[in-house]
Protein backbone atom coordinates (compact mmCIF):
# COMPACT_ATOMS: atom_id res chain seq x y z
CA UNK A 1 0.00 0.00 0.00
CA UNK A 2 1.22 3.46 -0.79
CA UNK A 3 -0.64 5.09 2.07
CA UNK A 4 1.23 5.54 5.29
CA UNK A 5 4.59 6.04 3.64
CA UNK A 6 4.11 9.77 3.92
CA UNK A 7 5.90 10.19 7.19
CA UNK A 8 8.58 7.55 6.74
CA UNK A 9 11.94 8.02 5.10
CA UNK A 10 11.43 9.07 1.48
CA UNK A 11 12.09 6.56 -1.25
CA UNK A 12 11.96 7.14 -4.98
CA UNK A 13 8.97 5.85 -6.92
CA UNK A 14 7.45 5.83 -10.37
CA UNK A 15 4.66 7.91 -11.96
CA UNK A 16 2.20 9.62 -9.67
CA UNK A 17 3.70 8.01 -6.63
CA UNK A 18 6.94 9.90 -7.13
CA UNK A 19 5.02 12.81 -5.67
CA UNK A 20 3.57 10.77 -2.83
CA UNK A 21 7.05 11.03 -1.45
CA UNK A 22 6.69 13.92 1.01
CA UNK A 23 10.32 14.99 0.87
CA UNK A 24 10.20 15.31 -2.89
CA UNK A 25 6.86 17.11 -2.76
CA UNK A 26 8.14 19.59 -0.16
CA UNK A 27 11.24 20.39 -2.18
CA UNK A 28 9.32 20.75 -5.44
CA UNK A 29 6.60 22.86 -3.81
CA UNK A 30 9.04 25.18 -2.06
CA UNK A 31 10.77 25.78 -5.37
CA UNK A 32 7.49 26.46 -7.21
CA UNK A 33 6.06 28.63 -4.43
CA UNK A 34 7.79 31.97 -5.24
CA UNK A 35 6.81 31.66 -8.91
CA UNK A 36 3.17 31.49 -7.85
CA UNK A 37 3.15 34.01 -5.02
CA UNK A 38 4.97 37.03 -6.42
CA UNK A 39 3.72 37.13 -10.05
CA UNK A 40 0.24 36.33 -8.71
CA UNK A 41 0.24 39.20 -6.24
CA UNK A 42 1.73 41.62 -8.79
CA UNK A 43 -0.78 40.77 -11.55
CA UNK A 44 -3.71 40.81 -9.14
CA UNK A 45 -2.80 44.19 -7.67
CA UNK A 46 -2.20 45.74 -11.11
CA UNK A 47 -5.46 44.26 -12.39
CA UNK A 48 -7.52 45.48 -9.44
CA UNK A 49 -5.98 48.94 -9.62
CA UNK A 50 -6.56 49.17 -13.37
CA UNK A 51 -10.10 47.92 -12.88
CA UNK A 52 -10.81 50.66 -10.36
CA UNK A 53 -9.04 53.62 -11.94
CA UNK A 54 -8.05 52.96 -15.57
CA UNK A 55 -10.91 50.96 -17.12
CA UNK A 56 -13.61 53.26 -18.53
CA UNK A 57 -17.09 53.03 -17.00
CA UNK A 58 -19.70 50.98 -18.86
CA UNK A 59 -22.17 52.85 -21.06
CA UNK A 60 -25.10 51.56 -19.01
CA UNK A 61 -23.85 50.24 -15.70
CA UNK A 62 -21.41 53.13 -15.22
CA UNK A 63 -18.96 52.39 -12.44
CA UNK A 64 -20.88 49.49 -10.92
CA UNK A 65 -19.36 47.21 -13.55
CA UNK A 66 -16.03 47.55 -11.69
CA UNK A 67 -17.41 44.99 -9.25
CA UNK A 68 -16.78 42.39 -11.95
CA UNK A 69 -13.00 42.66 -11.34
CA UNK A 70 -13.68 41.02 -7.99
CA UNK A 71 -16.71 38.94 -8.89
CA UNK A 72 -15.48 37.17 -12.03
CA UNK A 73 -12.13 35.89 -10.65
CA UNK A 74 -13.88 34.76 -7.45
CA UNK A 75 -16.53 32.92 -9.48
CA UNK A 76 -13.97 31.26 -11.76
CA UNK A 77 -11.84 30.17 -8.82
CA UNK A 78 -14.78 28.90 -6.78
CA UNK A 79 -15.68 26.66 -9.69
CA UNK A 80 -12.13 25.66 -10.72
CA UNK A 81 -11.27 25.09 -7.07
CA UNK A 82 -14.12 22.63 -6.81
CA UNK A 83 -12.90 20.82 -9.93
CA UNK A 84 -9.53 20.49 -8.21
CA UNK A 85 -11.24 19.32 -5.03
CA UNK A 86 -13.21 16.71 -6.97
CA UNK A 87 -10.06 15.54 -8.80
CA UNK A 88 -8.16 15.22 -5.51
CA UNK A 89 -11.11 13.31 -4.05
CA UNK A 90 -11.15 10.89 -6.98
CA UNK A 91 -7.41 10.23 -6.61
CA UNK A 92 -7.90 9.86 -2.87
CA UNK A 93 -10.77 7.38 -3.22
CA UNK A 94 -9.41 5.26 -6.07
CA UNK A 95 -5.64 5.37 -5.65
CA UNK A 96 -5.55 6.12 -1.91
CA UNK A 97 -2.90 8.73 -2.56
CA UNK A 98 -2.01 10.35 0.79
CA UNK A 99 -1.13 13.70 -0.76
CA UNK A 100 -4.56 13.84 -2.43
CA UNK A 101 -6.25 13.53 1.00
CA UNK A 102 -4.32 16.50 2.28
CA UNK A 103 -4.90 18.46 -0.95
CA UNK A 104 -8.67 17.99 -0.64
CA UNK A 105 -8.52 19.15 2.98
CA UNK A 106 -6.52 22.26 2.12
CA UNK A 107 -8.39 23.29 -1.06
CA UNK A 108 -11.76 23.34 0.73
CA UNK A 109 -11.46 26.50 2.84
CA UNK A 110 -9.79 28.48 0.03
CA UNK A 111 -12.54 27.52 -2.42
CA UNK A 112 -15.21 28.34 0.15
CA UNK A 113 -13.67 31.81 0.54
CA UNK A 114 -13.88 32.31 -3.23
CA UNK A 115 -17.50 31.13 -3.35
CA UNK A 116 -18.40 33.49 -0.51
CA UNK A 117 -16.70 36.40 -2.30
CA UNK A 118 -18.49 35.50 -5.52
CA UNK A 119 -21.89 35.50 -3.81
CA UNK A 120 -21.26 38.67 -1.79
CA UNK A 121 -19.82 40.72 -4.66
CA UNK A 122 -22.61 39.50 -6.94
CA UNK A 123 -25.15 40.64 -4.40
CA UNK A 124 -23.46 44.05 -4.17
CA UNK A 125 -23.74 44.32 -7.96
CA UNK A 126 -27.28 42.99 -8.12
CA UNK A 127 -28.77 45.57 -5.78
CA UNK A 128 -27.94 48.65 -7.88
CA UNK A 129 -28.17 46.93 -11.29
CA UNK A 130 -31.07 44.47 -11.09
CA UNK A 131 -32.82 46.13 -8.17
CA UNK A 132 -32.52 43.10 -5.86
CA UNK A 133 -29.80 41.75 -3.55
CA UNK A 134 -30.78 38.19 -4.30
CA UNK A 135 -33.10 36.25 -6.60
CA UNK A 136 -33.67 32.51 -6.69
CA UNK A 137 -32.73 31.97 -10.30
CA UNK A 138 -30.86 28.86 -11.44
CA UNK A 139 -27.40 30.48 -11.55
CA UNK A 140 -27.51 32.09 -8.13
CA UNK A 141 -29.08 29.06 -6.49
CA UNK A 142 -26.55 26.63 -7.96
CA UNK A 143 -23.64 28.80 -6.78
CA UNK A 144 -25.18 28.95 -3.30
CA UNK A 145 -25.33 25.14 -3.40
CA UNK A 146 -21.61 25.13 -4.32
CA UNK A 147 -20.85 27.25 -1.25
CA UNK A 148 -22.77 24.83 0.97
CA UNK A 149 -20.92 21.91 -0.62
CA UNK A 150 -17.62 23.52 0.32
CA UNK A 151 -18.86 24.11 3.89
CA UNK A 152 -20.07 20.50 4.13
CA UNK A 153 -16.73 19.21 2.86
CA UNK A 154 -14.80 21.34 5.36
CA UNK A 155 -16.93 20.01 8.23
CA UNK A 156 -16.98 16.35 7.16
CA UNK A 157 -13.24 16.04 6.49
CA UNK A 158 -12.53 17.22 10.05
CA UNK A 159 -15.42 15.44 11.76
CA UNK A 160 -13.90 11.99 12.38
CA UNK A 161 -11.45 10.87 15.05
CA UNK A 162 -9.88 8.60 12.46
CA UNK A 163 -8.72 10.99 9.71
CA UNK A 164 -8.81 8.22 7.08
CA UNK A 165 -12.56 7.86 7.54
CA UNK A 166 -12.96 11.61 7.25
CA UNK A 167 -11.03 11.61 3.96
CA UNK A 168 -13.23 8.83 2.53
CA UNK A 169 -16.51 10.43 3.58
CA UNK A 170 -15.47 13.90 2.39
CA UNK A 171 -14.22 12.52 -0.93
CA UNK A 172 -17.57 10.85 -1.57
CA UNK A 173 -19.37 14.10 -0.70
CA UNK A 174 -17.07 16.09 -3.00
CA UNK A 175 -17.63 13.71 -5.92
CA UNK A 176 -21.40 13.73 -5.50
CA UNK A 177 -21.30 17.53 -5.31
CA UNK A 178 -19.34 17.73 -8.57
CA UNK A 179 -22.66 17.29 -10.39
CA UNK A 180 -23.33 20.93 -9.44
CA UNK A 181 -20.40 22.18 -11.56
CA UNK A 182 -21.93 21.63 -15.04
CA UNK A 183 -25.25 22.88 -13.65
CA UNK A 184 -23.63 26.18 -12.62
CA UNK A 185 -21.87 26.54 -15.95
CA UNK A 186 -24.88 25.83 -18.14
CA UNK A 187 -27.60 27.25 -15.86
CA UNK A 188 -27.66 30.46 -17.91
CA UNK A 189 -28.00 28.44 -21.13
CA UNK A 190 -30.47 25.73 -20.12
CA UNK A 191 -32.93 27.92 -18.26
CA UNK A 192 -33.83 31.56 -18.51
CA UNK A 193 -32.25 33.31 -15.55
CA UNK A 194 -31.86 36.86 -14.32
CA UNK A 195 -28.09 36.40 -14.42
CA UNK A 196 -26.61 37.27 -17.82
CA UNK A 197 -24.87 34.61 -19.95
CA UNK A 198 -21.09 34.32 -19.98
CA UNK A 199 -19.09 37.20 -21.48
CA UNK A 200 -15.89 35.16 -21.66
CA UNK A 201 -16.10 31.84 -23.45
CA UNK A 202 -13.48 29.53 -24.85
CA UNK A 203 -15.19 29.35 -28.23
CA UNK A 204 -16.50 32.85 -29.01
CA UNK A 205 -14.81 36.21 -28.78
CA UNK A 206 -15.41 38.09 -25.53
CA UNK A 207 -18.30 40.56 -25.34
CA UNK A 208 -16.35 42.97 -23.19
CA UNK A 209 -14.58 45.89 -24.85
CA UNK A 210 -10.77 45.68 -24.70
CA UNK A 211 -10.13 48.67 -22.36
CA UNK A 212 -12.34 46.92 -19.77
CA UNK A 213 -11.17 43.43 -20.63
CA UNK A 214 -7.43 43.57 -20.03
CA UNK A 215 -7.67 44.47 -16.33
CA UNK A 216 -10.13 41.60 -15.93
CA UNK A 217 -7.73 39.16 -17.59
CA UNK A 218 -4.91 40.36 -15.29
CA UNK A 219 -7.20 39.86 -12.28
CA UNK A 220 -8.17 36.35 -13.40
CA UNK A 221 -4.57 35.22 -14.04
CA UNK A 222 -3.28 36.94 -10.89
CA UNK A 223 -6.01 35.55 -8.66
CA UNK A 224 -5.49 32.05 -10.08
CA UNK A 225 -1.77 32.20 -9.30
CA UNK A 226 -2.57 33.48 -5.80
CA UNK A 227 -5.07 30.65 -5.32
CA UNK A 228 -2.34 28.20 -6.34
CA UNK A 229 0.14 29.90 -4.00
CA UNK A 230 -2.20 29.73 -1.00
CA UNK A 231 -3.11 26.08 -1.63
CA UNK A 232 0.57 25.16 -2.14
CA UNK A 233 1.57 26.89 1.10
CA UNK A 234 -1.25 25.20 3.03
CA UNK A 235 -0.37 21.84 1.54
CA UNK A 236 3.31 22.23 2.44
CA UNK A 237 2.30 23.09 5.99
CA UNK A 238 -0.06 20.11 6.13
CA UNK A 239 2.64 17.68 4.93
CA UNK A 240 5.07 19.05 7.50
CA UNK A 241 2.45 18.88 10.25
CA UNK A 242 1.94 15.24 9.43
CA UNK A 243 5.65 14.55 9.56
CA UNK A 244 5.96 16.35 12.89
CA UNK A 245 3.13 14.24 14.33
CA UNK A 246 4.80 11.02 13.15
CA UNK A 247 8.22 12.04 14.48
CA UNK A 248 6.77 12.98 17.84
CA UNK A 249 4.90 9.66 18.01
CA UNK A 250 8.10 7.75 17.15
CA UNK A 251 10.05 9.66 19.82
CA UNK A 252 7.35 8.98 22.40
CA UNK A 253 7.45 5.27 21.56
CA UNK A 254 11.24 5.15 21.85
CA UNK A 255 11.09 6.95 25.18
CA UNK A 256 8.30 4.72 26.49
Amino acid sequence: MDAGTLATTPRSGRGLHRFANPGRFLRLASRVQPFLTWPGLALLLIGLYAGLFIAPPDYQQHDAMRIMYVHVPAAILAETGYWALAAASLVSLVWRHPLADLAAKEIGPVGAGCALLCLASGSLWGKPMWGAWWVWDARLTSVLVLFFLYIGHILVIRAFDDPERGYRAAAILALIGAIDLPIIKYSVVWWNTLHQPASLTLTGSPTIAWPMLWPLLLCIVGASLCFGAVVTARLRAAVMERRIATLLRAQAEQAG
Binding site: P56, P57, D58, Y59, Q60, Q61, M65, M68, M129, W130, G131, A132, V135, L194, Q196, P197, A198, S199, T207, I208, A209, P211, M212, L213
Partner: peptide, 17 residues
Protein backbone atom coordinates in the same frame (compact mmCIF):
# COMPACT_ATOMS: atom_id res chain seq x y z
CA UNK B 1 -41.56 44.16 -8.48
CA UNK B 2 -39.53 45.01 -11.57
CA UNK B 3 -35.94 43.82 -11.98
CA UNK B 4 -33.64 44.99 -14.77
CA UNK B 5 -31.92 42.19 -16.65
CA UNK B 6 -28.49 43.07 -17.91
CA UNK B 7 -26.87 41.46 -20.94
CA UNK B 8 -23.30 40.16 -21.16
CA UNK B 9 -21.95 43.10 -23.18
CA UNK B 10 -19.64 45.64 -21.60
CA UNK B 11 -18.36 48.70 -23.45
CA UNK B 12 -17.37 52.28 -22.74
CA UNK B 13 -19.77 55.10 -23.60
CA UNK B 14 -17.76 56.35 -26.58
CA UNK B 15 -17.64 52.89 -28.13
CA UNK B 16 -21.41 52.53 -27.72
CA UNK B 17 -21.94 55.93 -29.33
Amino acid sequence: EVLAKHDEKYMPKDVAE
